[in-house]
Protein backbone atom coordinates (compact mmCIF):
# COMPACT_ATOMS: atom_id res chain seq x y z
CA UNK A 1 0.00 0.00 0.00
CA UNK A 2 2.81 2.34 0.87
CA UNK A 3 4.37 1.79 -2.55
CA UNK A 4 1.05 2.39 -4.20
CA UNK A 5 0.68 5.72 -2.40
CA UNK A 6 4.21 6.71 -3.30
CA UNK A 7 3.53 5.90 -6.93
CA UNK A 8 0.38 8.02 -6.98
CA UNK A 9 2.18 10.98 -5.46
CA UNK A 10 5.08 10.72 -7.88
CA UNK A 11 2.61 10.54 -10.77
CA UNK A 12 1.30 13.93 -9.66
CA UNK A 13 4.73 15.49 -9.56
CA UNK A 14 4.82 16.68 -13.18
CA UNK A 15 1.87 18.95 -12.39
CA UNK A 16 3.87 20.77 -9.76
CA UNK A 17 6.36 23.44 -10.67
CA UNK A 18 9.96 22.33 -10.31
CA UNK A 19 11.76 23.71 -7.31
CA UNK A 20 14.78 25.89 -7.80
CA UNK A 21 17.54 26.94 -5.46
CA UNK A 22 17.16 30.65 -4.74
CA UNK A 23 19.54 32.71 -2.64
CA UNK A 24 17.90 35.59 -0.82
CA UNK A 25 19.79 38.23 1.09
CA UNK A 26 17.57 39.14 4.00
CA UNK A 27 18.63 41.49 6.79
CA UNK A 28 22.24 41.15 5.68
CA UNK A 29 22.30 37.35 5.65
CA UNK A 30 22.30 35.19 2.55
CA UNK A 31 20.18 32.07 2.69
CA UNK A 32 19.61 29.53 -0.04
CA UNK A 33 16.24 27.87 -0.17
CA UNK A 34 14.54 25.58 -2.66
CA UNK A 35 11.22 26.86 -3.87
CA UNK A 36 8.86 26.91 -6.83
CA UNK A 37 8.78 30.05 -9.02
CA UNK A 38 5.25 30.82 -7.83
CA UNK A 39 6.29 31.43 -4.20
CA UNK A 40 5.83 35.10 -3.35
CA UNK A 41 8.55 36.93 -1.48
CA UNK A 42 6.09 37.19 1.41
CA UNK A 43 5.58 33.43 1.59
CA UNK A 44 9.32 32.81 1.23
CA UNK A 45 10.01 35.08 4.20
CA UNK A 46 7.31 33.59 6.40
CA UNK A 47 7.19 29.93 5.41
CA UNK A 48 10.72 29.20 4.20
CA UNK A 49 12.85 31.57 6.28
CA UNK A 50 10.63 31.66 9.39
CA UNK A 51 10.70 35.45 9.41
CA UNK A 52 7.09 35.84 10.47
CA UNK A 53 7.33 39.51 11.42
CA UNK A 54 6.20 40.40 7.90
CA UNK A 55 2.45 39.85 7.87
CA UNK A 56 0.05 38.48 5.28
CA UNK A 57 -3.09 40.61 5.27
CA UNK A 58 -4.92 40.69 1.96
CA UNK A 59 -2.22 39.03 -0.22
CA UNK A 60 -3.32 41.35 -3.06
CA UNK A 61 -1.35 44.56 -2.46
CA UNK A 62 -4.28 46.38 -0.93
CA UNK A 63 -3.40 46.47 2.80
CA UNK A 64 0.36 47.01 3.09
CA UNK A 65 0.84 44.54 5.99
CA UNK A 66 3.49 42.73 3.92
CA UNK A 67 5.61 45.84 3.28
CA UNK A 68 9.37 45.22 3.27
CA UNK A 69 12.32 47.17 1.88
CA UNK A 70 14.07 45.94 -1.26
CA UNK A 71 17.24 47.82 -2.15
CA UNK A 72 16.06 50.50 0.28
CA UNK A 73 12.62 50.95 -1.28
CA UNK A 74 9.34 49.91 0.31
CA UNK A 75 7.34 47.38 -1.68
CA UNK A 76 4.49 44.90 -1.18
CA UNK A 77 6.20 41.53 -0.69
CA UNK A 78 2.96 39.71 -1.62
CA UNK A 79 3.12 41.01 -5.20
CA UNK A 80 6.64 39.97 -6.09
CA UNK A 81 8.01 36.48 -6.53
CA UNK A 82 10.87 35.38 -4.29
CA UNK A 83 12.79 34.20 -7.34
CA UNK A 84 12.61 37.73 -8.80
CA UNK A 85 14.33 39.18 -5.71
CA UNK A 86 17.46 37.02 -5.87
CA UNK A 87 20.45 39.34 -5.71
CA UNK A 88 18.56 42.17 -4.03
CA UNK A 89 18.96 43.50 -0.48
CA UNK A 90 15.82 42.70 1.48
CA UNK A 91 15.15 44.28 4.87
CA UNK A 92 12.24 43.13 7.03
CA UNK A 93 10.94 44.33 10.38
CA UNK A 94 13.37 41.86 12.03
CA UNK A 95 16.30 43.70 10.44
CA UNK A 96 15.56 47.23 11.65
CA UNK A 97 16.84 47.13 15.24
CA UNK A 98 20.56 47.12 15.94
CA UNK A 99 20.80 44.45 18.60
CA UNK A 100 18.77 45.71 21.54
CA UNK A 101 18.63 49.23 20.14
CA UNK A 102 15.33 49.76 18.39
CA UNK A 103 14.97 51.72 15.15
CA UNK A 104 13.77 55.28 15.99
CA UNK A 105 10.47 54.50 14.31
CA UNK A 106 9.99 51.40 16.46
CA UNK A 107 10.64 53.52 19.56
CA UNK A 108 8.28 56.22 18.32
CA UNK A 109 5.51 53.71 17.60
CA UNK A 110 5.79 52.44 21.21
CA UNK A 111 5.90 55.95 22.69
CA UNK A 112 2.92 57.13 20.65
CA UNK A 113 0.90 53.95 21.18
CA UNK A 114 0.67 53.72 17.39
CA UNK A 115 -1.13 50.36 17.27
CA UNK A 116 -3.80 48.30 18.94
CA UNK A 117 -3.75 44.70 17.67
CA UNK A 118 -0.33 45.18 16.06
CA UNK A 119 -0.96 43.11 12.95
CA UNK A 120 -0.36 45.97 10.52
CA UNK A 121 2.53 47.41 12.57
CA UNK A 122 5.51 45.70 10.87
CA UNK A 123 4.19 46.88 7.51
CA UNK A 124 3.48 50.37 8.86
CA UNK A 125 7.00 50.68 10.27
CA UNK A 126 8.74 49.31 7.17
CA UNK A 127 6.61 51.63 5.04
CA UNK A 128 7.53 54.58 7.26
CA UNK A 129 11.24 53.68 6.96
CA UNK A 130 10.78 53.85 3.19
CA UNK A 131 8.92 57.14 3.49
CA UNK A 132 11.78 58.69 5.49
CA UNK A 133 14.33 57.54 2.92
CA UNK A 134 12.24 59.00 0.08
CA UNK A 135 12.25 62.40 1.79
CA UNK A 136 9.04 63.60 0.11
CA UNK A 137 6.85 64.04 3.20
CA UNK A 138 7.00 67.69 4.21
CA UNK A 139 3.66 68.07 5.98
CA UNK A 140 1.28 66.00 8.07
CA UNK A 141 -0.97 65.77 5.01
CA UNK A 142 1.99 64.40 3.02
CA UNK A 143 2.56 61.70 5.66
CA UNK A 144 -1.10 60.68 5.48
CA UNK A 145 -1.06 60.57 1.68
CA UNK A 146 2.25 58.69 1.45
CA UNK A 147 1.20 56.16 4.10
CA UNK A 148 -2.14 55.42 2.42
CA UNK A 149 -0.88 52.06 1.22
CA UNK A 150 -0.98 50.78 4.80
CA UNK A 151 -4.38 49.99 6.24
CA UNK A 152 -4.94 49.82 10.02
CA UNK A 153 -8.29 48.21 10.81
CA UNK A 154 -8.00 49.22 14.48
CA UNK A 155 -7.85 52.81 13.31
CA UNK A 156 -4.62 53.82 15.05
CA UNK A 157 -3.89 56.27 12.22
CA UNK A 158 -3.68 59.40 14.38
CA UNK A 159 -0.92 57.94 16.53
CA UNK A 160 0.85 56.35 13.55
CA UNK A 161 1.06 59.77 11.90
CA UNK A 162 2.26 61.35 15.18
CA UNK A 163 5.00 58.73 15.55
CA UNK A 164 6.27 59.27 12.02
CA UNK A 165 6.02 63.04 12.40
CA UNK A 166 8.17 62.95 15.52
CA UNK A 167 10.91 60.93 13.81
CA UNK A 168 10.93 63.32 10.85
CA UNK A 169 11.14 66.32 13.19
CA UNK A 170 14.06 64.71 15.04
CA UNK A 171 16.03 64.55 11.83
CA UNK A 172 14.57 61.75 9.82
CA UNK A 173 16.55 58.87 8.67
CA UNK A 174 19.13 58.19 11.35
CA UNK A 175 19.94 54.58 12.10
CA UNK A 176 20.43 53.36 8.52
Amino acid sequence: MQNQAAFEISALQPALPPQQAVTLKVNGQEKTIKLAPWVSLLDALREYLQLTGTKKGCDHGQCGACTVLVNGKRINSCLTLAIMEEGNEIITIEGLAKGDELHPLQTAFIEHDAYQCGYCTPGQICSAVGLLAEGKAKTTADIKELMSGNICRCGAYTNIVSAIEEVIQKGGQAHE
Binding site: G61, N76, S127, G130
Partner: peptide, 9 residues
Protein backbone atom coordinates in the same frame (compact mmCIF):
# COMPACT_ATOMS: atom_id res chain seq x y z
CA UNK B 1 -2.57 56.49 -8.45
CA UNK B 2 -1.91 53.43 -6.27
CA UNK B 3 0.26 53.61 -3.13
CA UNK B 4 3.90 54.51 -2.51
CA UNK B 5 4.78 50.79 -2.33
CA UNK B 6 3.08 50.00 -5.64
CA UNK B 7 4.61 53.02 -7.38
CA UNK B 8 8.04 51.78 -6.25
CA UNK B 9 7.38 48.46 -7.99
Amino acid sequence: GASAQLRNM
